[in-house]
Write a protein that binds this DNA or RNA. Structure first.
Lengths: 197, 197
DNA sequence: GTCTATACTGAGATAGAC
DNA sequence: GTCTATCTCAGTATAGAC
Protein backbone atom coordinates (compact mmCIF):
# COMPACT_ATOMS: atom_id res chain seq x y z
CA UNK A 1 0.00 0.00 0.00
CA UNK A 2 1.49 3.31 -1.08
CA UNK A 3 -1.27 5.83 -0.39
CA UNK A 4 -2.09 4.95 3.20
CA UNK A 5 -5.79 4.71 3.67
CA UNK A 6 -6.78 6.37 0.42
CA UNK A 7 -9.51 4.89 -1.70
CA UNK A 8 -8.91 3.35 -5.10
CA UNK A 9 -11.31 1.82 -7.58
CA UNK A 10 -12.09 2.32 -11.26
CA UNK A 11 -14.15 5.42 -10.52
CA UNK A 12 -11.95 8.47 -9.97
CA UNK A 13 -14.76 10.88 -9.09
CA UNK A 14 -16.17 8.53 -6.51
CA UNK A 15 -12.73 7.95 -5.01
CA UNK A 16 -12.08 11.67 -4.79
CA UNK A 17 -15.45 12.19 -3.09
CA UNK A 18 -14.71 9.55 -0.46
CA UNK A 19 -11.25 10.98 0.26
CA UNK A 20 -12.65 14.50 0.58
CA UNK A 21 -15.41 13.19 2.84
CA UNK A 22 -12.90 11.55 5.19
CA UNK A 23 -11.08 14.85 5.56
CA UNK A 24 -14.23 16.89 6.08
CA UNK A 25 -15.91 14.49 8.50
CA UNK A 26 -12.69 14.51 10.49
CA UNK A 27 -12.26 18.26 10.65
CA UNK A 28 -15.87 19.36 10.90
CA UNK A 29 -17.80 16.27 11.92
CA UNK A 30 -20.90 14.96 10.19
CA UNK A 31 -23.00 18.00 11.10
CA UNK A 32 -20.32 20.44 10.08
CA UNK A 33 -19.79 18.82 6.69
CA UNK A 34 -21.72 20.04 3.68
CA UNK A 35 -22.17 18.44 0.28
CA UNK A 36 -21.19 21.78 -1.20
CA UNK A 37 -17.83 21.58 0.55
CA UNK A 38 -17.13 18.11 -0.79
CA UNK A 39 -18.24 19.20 -4.25
CA UNK A 40 -15.91 22.19 -4.26
CA UNK A 41 -13.01 20.06 -3.02
CA UNK A 42 -13.35 17.56 -5.87
CA UNK A 43 -14.39 20.04 -8.57
CA UNK A 44 -18.01 18.99 -8.99
CA UNK A 45 -21.38 20.52 -8.22
CA UNK A 46 -23.64 19.40 -5.39
CA UNK A 47 -25.81 17.47 -7.81
CA UNK A 48 -22.77 15.72 -9.17
CA UNK A 49 -21.72 14.53 -5.73
CA UNK A 50 -25.23 13.38 -4.85
CA UNK A 51 -25.37 11.33 -8.03
CA UNK A 52 -22.55 9.18 -6.61
CA UNK A 53 -23.52 8.92 -2.96
CA UNK A 54 -27.28 9.41 -2.91
CA UNK A 55 -27.41 11.50 0.22
CA UNK A 56 -25.28 12.82 3.04
CA UNK A 57 -26.08 9.77 5.17
CA UNK A 58 -25.21 7.53 2.24
CA UNK A 59 -21.84 9.23 2.02
CA UNK A 60 -21.23 8.59 5.72
CA UNK A 61 -22.08 4.92 5.38
CA UNK A 62 -19.81 4.52 2.37
CA UNK A 63 -16.91 6.15 4.11
CA UNK A 64 -17.19 4.09 7.28
CA UNK A 65 -17.59 0.70 5.66
CA UNK A 66 -15.36 1.12 2.60
CA UNK A 67 -12.64 3.29 4.08
CA UNK A 68 -12.26 2.81 7.82
CA UNK A 69 -13.23 -0.81 8.35
CA UNK A 70 -10.82 -2.16 5.78
CA UNK A 71 -7.64 -3.16 7.57
CA UNK A 72 -8.57 -3.08 11.23
CA UNK A 73 -10.28 -6.42 11.23
CA UNK A 74 -7.43 -7.92 9.24
CA UNK A 75 -5.11 -7.25 12.16
CA UNK A 76 -7.34 -9.17 14.52
CA UNK A 77 -7.52 -12.06 12.08
CA UNK A 78 -3.75 -12.06 11.67
CA UNK A 79 -3.33 -12.15 15.45
CA UNK A 80 -5.62 -15.12 15.81
CA UNK A 81 -3.35 -17.08 13.48
CA UNK A 82 -0.27 -16.42 15.61
CA UNK A 83 1.02 -19.41 17.58
CA UNK A 84 1.07 -17.47 20.85
CA UNK A 85 -1.33 -14.53 20.42
CA UNK A 86 0.01 -11.47 22.21
CA UNK A 87 -2.02 -8.43 23.23
CA UNK A 88 1.01 -6.11 23.10
CA UNK A 89 1.78 -7.33 19.58
CA UNK A 90 -1.79 -6.83 18.40
CA UNK A 91 -1.88 -3.26 19.68
CA UNK A 92 1.53 -2.53 18.19
CA UNK A 93 0.15 -3.63 14.82
CA UNK A 94 -2.93 -1.46 15.18
CA UNK A 95 -0.84 1.55 16.15
CA UNK A 96 1.63 1.05 13.31
CA UNK A 97 -1.29 0.79 10.89
CA UNK A 98 -3.06 3.88 12.23
CA UNK A 99 0.17 5.85 12.28
CA UNK A 100 0.09 5.74 8.49
CA UNK A 101 -3.52 6.87 8.05
CA UNK A 102 -3.98 9.97 10.19
CA UNK A 103 -6.89 11.27 8.14
CA UNK A 104 -8.93 8.14 8.84
CA UNK A 105 -8.02 8.16 12.52
CA UNK A 106 -9.06 11.81 12.65
CA UNK A 107 -12.42 10.95 11.13
CA UNK A 108 -12.84 8.05 13.51
CA UNK A 109 -12.08 10.18 16.57
CA UNK A 110 -14.40 13.02 15.62
CA UNK A 111 -17.28 10.80 14.58
CA UNK A 112 -17.02 8.48 17.57
CA UNK A 113 -17.48 11.44 19.91
CA UNK A 114 -20.23 13.02 17.82
CA UNK A 115 -21.96 9.62 17.65
CA UNK A 116 -22.46 9.43 21.40
CA UNK A 117 -25.77 11.06 20.51
CA UNK A 118 -28.27 8.20 19.97
CA UNK A 119 -29.81 10.16 17.07
CA UNK A 120 -26.50 10.41 15.21
CA UNK A 121 -26.54 8.44 11.94
CA UNK A 122 -23.36 6.61 12.98
CA UNK A 123 -24.41 5.88 16.56
CA UNK A 124 -25.24 2.23 15.97
CA UNK A 125 -22.10 1.70 13.91
CA UNK A 126 -19.88 2.74 16.81
CA UNK A 127 -21.86 0.97 19.50
CA UNK A 128 -21.81 -2.29 17.54
CA UNK A 129 -18.17 -1.95 16.60
CA UNK A 130 -17.06 -1.46 20.18
CA UNK A 131 -18.97 -4.51 21.34
CA UNK A 132 -17.75 -6.70 18.49
CA UNK A 133 -14.09 -5.85 18.94
CA UNK A 134 -14.05 -6.78 22.61
CA UNK A 135 -16.15 -9.90 22.01
CA UNK A 136 -13.82 -11.06 19.23
CA UNK A 137 -10.72 -10.38 21.27
CA UNK A 138 -12.13 -12.29 24.23
CA UNK A 139 -12.35 -15.42 22.09
CA UNK A 140 -8.61 -15.46 21.53
CA UNK A 141 -6.40 -17.61 23.74
CA UNK A 142 -4.05 -14.82 24.76
CA UNK A 143 -0.59 -15.50 26.06
CA UNK A 144 -0.53 -13.38 29.22
CA UNK A 145 1.14 -13.60 32.65
CA UNK A 146 -0.72 -15.26 35.49
CA UNK A 147 -3.21 -13.09 37.30
CA UNK A 148 -3.98 -10.75 34.39
CA UNK A 149 -7.67 -9.97 33.86
CA UNK A 150 -7.84 -10.04 30.06
CA UNK A 151 -11.21 -8.34 29.67
CA UNK A 152 -10.31 -5.42 31.92
CA UNK A 153 -6.96 -5.07 30.20
CA UNK A 154 -8.57 -5.04 26.76
CA UNK A 155 -11.18 -2.45 27.68
CA UNK A 156 -8.62 -0.26 29.45
CA UNK A 157 -6.10 -0.52 26.63
CA UNK A 158 -8.54 0.27 23.84
CA UNK A 159 -9.76 3.26 25.84
CA UNK A 160 -6.19 4.44 26.32
CA UNK A 161 -5.53 4.11 22.60
CA UNK A 162 -8.48 6.36 21.79
CA UNK A 163 -7.15 9.00 24.16
CA UNK A 164 -3.61 8.73 22.82
CA UNK A 165 -4.75 9.05 19.22
CA UNK A 166 -6.63 12.21 20.19
CA UNK A 167 -3.44 13.67 21.64
CA UNK A 168 -1.42 12.52 18.66
CA UNK A 169 -3.74 14.34 16.25
CA UNK A 170 -3.95 17.46 18.37
CA UNK A 171 -0.21 18.13 18.28
CA UNK A 172 1.27 17.71 14.79
CA UNK A 173 4.66 16.19 14.22
CA UNK A 174 4.41 13.46 16.82
CA UNK A 175 4.89 9.78 16.11
CA UNK A 176 2.02 7.60 17.25
CA UNK A 177 4.16 4.50 17.66
CA UNK A 178 6.53 6.35 19.99
CA UNK A 179 3.64 7.64 22.08
CA UNK A 180 2.24 4.13 22.32
CA UNK A 181 5.61 2.73 23.36
CA UNK A 182 5.37 4.92 26.47
CA UNK A 183 1.90 3.54 27.14
CA UNK A 184 3.16 -0.01 26.94
CA UNK A 185 5.31 0.53 30.00
CA UNK A 186 2.16 1.40 31.89
CA UNK A 187 -0.08 -1.31 30.45
CA UNK A 188 2.48 -4.13 30.58
CA UNK A 189 4.76 -3.34 33.52
CA UNK A 190 8.00 -5.23 34.02
CA UNK A 191 8.94 -7.57 35.55
CA UNK A 192 5.41 -9.03 35.40
CA UNK A 193 5.27 -8.97 31.60
CA UNK A 194 8.87 -10.08 31.09
CA UNK A 195 8.80 -12.54 28.21
CA UNK A 196 5.17 -11.79 27.32
CA UNK A 197 5.71 -8.65 25.29
CA UNK B 1 -23.75 21.69 44.97
CA UNK B 2 -27.13 20.10 44.32
CA UNK B 3 -27.60 20.49 40.59
CA UNK B 4 -24.37 18.92 39.42
CA UNK B 5 -22.71 21.13 36.88
CA UNK B 6 -25.69 23.40 36.23
CA UNK B 7 -25.19 27.13 36.10
CA UNK B 8 -26.59 29.51 38.70
CA UNK B 9 -26.43 33.26 38.92
CA UNK B 10 -28.94 36.09 39.31
CA UNK B 11 -29.81 35.93 35.63
CA UNK B 12 -32.24 33.10 34.86
CA UNK B 13 -32.29 33.57 31.09
CA UNK B 14 -28.55 33.57 30.86
CA UNK B 15 -28.32 30.44 33.02
CA UNK B 16 -30.88 28.65 30.89
CA UNK B 17 -28.96 29.59 27.75
CA UNK B 18 -25.69 28.19 29.13
CA UNK B 19 -27.34 24.94 30.22
CA UNK B 20 -28.99 24.50 26.83
CA UNK B 21 -25.69 25.25 25.13
CA UNK B 22 -23.89 22.55 27.11
CA UNK B 23 -26.47 20.00 26.00
CA UNK B 24 -26.42 21.06 22.36
CA UNK B 25 -22.64 21.36 22.04
CA UNK B 26 -22.42 17.86 23.53
CA UNK B 27 -24.95 16.25 21.23
CA UNK B 28 -24.29 18.12 18.02
CA UNK B 29 -20.90 19.73 18.46
CA UNK B 30 -20.12 23.37 17.84
CA UNK B 31 -20.82 23.16 14.11
CA UNK B 32 -24.05 21.27 14.61
CA UNK B 33 -25.41 23.72 17.16
CA UNK B 34 -27.57 26.64 16.05
CA UNK B 35 -28.57 29.73 17.96
CA UNK B 36 -32.12 28.98 16.87
CA UNK B 37 -31.99 25.64 18.65
CA UNK B 38 -30.78 27.20 21.90
CA UNK B 39 -33.43 29.90 21.58
CA UNK B 40 -36.23 27.37 21.12
CA UNK B 41 -34.97 25.32 24.08
CA UNK B 42 -35.08 28.27 26.44
CA UNK B 43 -38.16 29.98 25.00
CA UNK B 44 -36.53 32.99 23.42
CA UNK B 45 -35.87 34.22 19.90
CA UNK B 46 -32.47 34.21 18.25
CA UNK B 47 -32.09 37.92 18.90
CA UNK B 48 -32.87 37.35 22.56
CA UNK B 49 -30.13 34.75 22.90
CA UNK B 50 -27.60 36.87 21.04
CA UNK B 51 -28.32 39.75 23.36
CA UNK B 52 -26.89 37.63 26.21
CA UNK B 53 -23.96 35.94 24.54
CA UNK B 54 -22.99 38.26 21.69
CA UNK B 55 -22.23 35.55 19.16
CA UNK B 56 -21.96 31.81 18.75
CA UNK B 57 -18.25 31.92 19.54
CA UNK B 58 -18.98 34.03 22.60
CA UNK B 59 -21.41 31.37 23.78
CA UNK B 60 -18.74 28.71 23.37
CA UNK B 61 -16.22 30.71 25.38
CA UNK B 62 -18.72 31.33 28.15
CA UNK B 63 -19.66 27.71 28.41
CA UNK B 64 -16.07 26.44 28.56
CA UNK B 65 -14.77 28.92 31.10
CA UNK B 66 -17.84 29.35 33.32
CA UNK B 67 -19.22 25.82 33.19
CA UNK B 68 -16.54 23.23 32.52
CA UNK B 69 -13.46 24.72 34.11
CA UNK B 70 -15.09 25.29 37.47
CA UNK B 71 -14.31 22.31 39.67
CA UNK B 72 -11.63 20.45 37.77
CA UNK B 73 -8.81 22.70 38.87
CA UNK B 74 -10.11 22.61 42.46
CA UNK B 75 -9.42 18.88 42.56
CA UNK B 76 -5.83 19.41 41.56
CA UNK B 77 -5.46 22.14 44.21
CA UNK B 78 -7.00 19.89 46.84
CA UNK B 79 -4.58 17.12 45.93
CA UNK B 80 -1.57 19.40 46.28
CA UNK B 81 -2.58 20.11 49.87
CA UNK B 82 -2.67 16.41 50.79
CA UNK B 83 0.19 15.19 53.00
CA UNK B 84 1.03 12.35 50.66
CA UNK B 85 -0.37 13.24 47.24
CA UNK B 86 -1.68 10.13 45.50
CA UNK B 87 -2.33 9.79 41.76
CA UNK B 88 -5.00 7.10 42.28
CA UNK B 89 -6.79 9.36 44.76
CA UNK B 90 -6.69 12.36 42.45
CA UNK B 91 -8.16 10.39 39.58
CA UNK B 92 -10.82 8.88 41.83
CA UNK B 93 -11.85 12.41 42.76
CA UNK B 94 -12.00 13.51 39.15
CA UNK B 95 -14.06 10.48 38.20
CA UNK B 96 -16.48 10.90 41.11
CA UNK B 97 -16.91 14.54 40.14
CA UNK B 98 -17.46 13.82 36.46
CA UNK B 99 -19.85 10.97 37.27
CA UNK B 100 -22.25 13.62 38.53
CA UNK B 101 -22.06 15.93 35.54
CA UNK B 102 -22.55 13.77 32.44
CA UNK B 103 -23.79 16.67 30.31
CA UNK B 104 -20.55 18.58 30.82
CA UNK B 105 -18.42 15.51 30.20
CA UNK B 106 -20.40 14.91 27.02
CA UNK B 107 -19.72 18.45 25.86
CA UNK B 108 -16.05 18.09 26.73
CA UNK B 109 -15.70 14.82 24.81
CA UNK B 110 -17.43 16.08 21.68
CA UNK B 111 -15.66 19.43 21.59
CA UNK B 112 -12.23 18.01 22.32
CA UNK B 113 -12.47 15.76 19.27
CA UNK B 114 -13.98 18.48 17.07
CA UNK B 115 -11.25 20.85 18.25
CA UNK B 116 -8.45 18.75 16.79
CA UNK B 117 -9.01 21.01 13.81
CA UNK B 118 -6.62 23.96 14.23
CA UNK B 119 -9.32 26.29 12.86
CA UNK B 120 -11.85 25.26 15.51
CA UNK B 121 -12.71 28.13 17.88
CA UNK B 122 -11.88 25.91 20.87
CA UNK B 123 -8.65 24.46 19.48
CA UNK B 124 -6.33 26.61 21.58
CA UNK B 125 -8.41 26.06 24.69
CA UNK B 126 -7.95 22.30 24.52
CA UNK B 127 -4.30 22.40 23.50
CA UNK B 128 -3.44 24.75 26.35
CA UNK B 129 -5.54 22.84 28.87
CA UNK B 130 -3.85 19.54 28.07
CA UNK B 131 -0.41 21.05 28.46
CA UNK B 132 -1.27 22.87 31.70
CA UNK B 133 -2.79 19.84 33.41
CA UNK B 134 0.26 17.65 32.85
CA UNK B 135 2.64 20.49 33.75
CA UNK B 136 0.78 21.18 36.99
CA UNK B 137 0.62 17.53 37.92
CA UNK B 138 4.35 17.12 37.30
CA UNK B 139 5.07 19.74 39.95
CA UNK B 140 3.43 17.65 42.66
CA UNK B 141 5.61 15.42 44.83
CA UNK B 142 3.63 12.23 44.19
CA UNK B 143 3.76 9.27 46.53
CA UNK B 144 4.43 6.43 44.10
CA UNK B 145 6.27 3.08 44.22
CA UNK B 146 9.93 2.98 43.18
CA UNK B 147 10.52 2.70 39.48
CA UNK B 148 7.30 4.40 38.36
CA UNK B 149 7.69 6.94 35.54
CA UNK B 150 5.27 9.62 36.73
CA UNK B 151 5.03 11.56 33.48
CA UNK B 152 4.27 8.50 31.38
CA UNK B 153 1.76 7.30 33.94
CA UNK B 154 -0.02 10.67 33.98
CA UNK B 155 -0.23 10.92 30.20
CA UNK B 156 -1.36 7.32 29.85
CA UNK B 157 -3.94 7.62 32.64
CA UNK B 158 -5.48 10.86 31.41
CA UNK B 159 -5.72 9.34 27.93
CA UNK B 160 -7.40 6.25 29.36
CA UNK B 161 -9.87 8.42 31.24
CA UNK B 162 -10.90 10.18 28.04
CA UNK B 163 -11.55 6.85 26.38
CA UNK B 164 -13.46 5.48 29.35
CA UNK B 165 -15.67 8.54 29.55
CA UNK B 166 -16.50 8.12 25.87
CA UNK B 167 -17.58 4.53 26.52
CA UNK B 168 -19.49 5.57 29.63
CA UNK B 169 -21.51 8.13 27.66
CA UNK B 170 -22.11 5.82 24.73
CA UNK B 171 -23.88 3.17 26.80
CA UNK B 172 -26.42 4.66 29.21
CA UNK B 173 -26.97 3.30 32.68
CA UNK B 174 -23.35 2.62 33.49
CA UNK B 175 -21.53 3.99 36.51
CA UNK B 176 -18.34 5.84 35.67
CA UNK B 177 -16.74 5.16 39.06
CA UNK B 178 -17.23 1.41 38.63
CA UNK B 179 -15.72 1.52 35.14
CA UNK B 180 -12.76 3.43 36.49
CA UNK B 181 -12.27 0.96 39.33
CA UNK B 182 -11.58 -1.69 36.66
CA UNK B 183 -9.04 0.62 35.07
CA UNK B 184 -7.23 1.08 38.36
CA UNK B 185 -6.29 -2.58 38.41
CA UNK B 186 -4.54 -2.03 35.10
CA UNK B 187 -2.93 1.33 35.92
CA UNK B 188 -1.83 0.46 39.46
CA UNK B 189 -1.18 -3.30 39.48
CA UNK B 190 -0.71 -5.14 42.72
CA UNK B 191 1.51 -6.02 44.44
CA UNK B 192 3.62 -3.09 43.12
CA UNK B 193 1.10 -0.48 44.24
CA UNK B 194 0.27 -2.16 47.55
CA UNK B 195 -0.01 0.64 50.08
CA UNK B 196 0.19 3.38 47.46
CA UNK B 197 -3.44 3.36 46.36
C1' DG C 1 -21.86 11.16 -15.38
C1' DT C 2 -22.35 15.87 -14.85
C1' DC C 3 -24.70 19.97 -15.43
C1' DT C 4 -28.30 24.08 -14.57
C1' DA C 5 -32.20 25.43 -12.34
C1' DT C 6 -35.20 25.36 -8.69
C1' DA C 7 -37.67 24.37 -4.21
C1' DC C 8 -37.54 24.67 0.33
C1' DT C 9 -35.51 25.33 4.77
C1' DG C 10 -32.37 27.09 7.88
C1' DA C 11 -28.17 29.55 9.35
C1' DG C 12 -25.77 33.98 12.00
C1' DA C 13 -26.18 38.60 12.77
C1' DT C 14 -28.02 43.51 12.98
C1' DA C 15 -31.41 47.50 13.45
C1' DG C 16 -34.65 49.46 15.84
C1' DA C 17 -39.27 49.40 18.36
C1' DC C 18 -41.15 48.63 22.94
C1' DG D 1 -34.32 42.29 28.18
C1' DT D 2 -36.95 40.79 24.54
C1' DC D 3 -39.26 41.38 20.39
C1' DT D 4 -40.17 41.76 14.98
C1' DA D 5 -38.23 42.37 10.75
C1' DT D 6 -34.72 41.99 7.62
C1' DC D 7 -30.24 40.99 5.35
C1' DT D 8 -27.17 37.72 3.42
C1' DC D 9 -25.74 33.46 2.87
C1' DA D 10 -25.70 28.32 2.89
C1' DG D 11 -27.98 23.88 3.60
C1' DT D 12 -30.13 19.11 1.25
C1' DA D 13 -32.40 17.41 -2.34
C1' DT D 14 -34.91 16.83 -6.86
C1' DA D 15 -36.08 17.36 -11.92
C1' DG D 16 -34.67 17.32 -16.20
C1' DA D 17 -31.42 18.76 -20.10
C1' DC D 18 -27.24 17.20 -22.35
Amino acid sequence: MTNAGASSSDNPSRDAILDAAVASFGRLGYHGTSIQRIATDVGLTKAGVLHHVGSKEGLLRLVLTEMYDSGTMDIMAETIRDERPSIPTMWRRVVAFNNRRPALVHMFSTLSAEAIDPEHPAHDYFATREHDIVATALNINWNVPDGVDVEKLLRAGFAMMDGIQLRWLRTPGQDLTAMWADCENVLFPLPQWEGYR
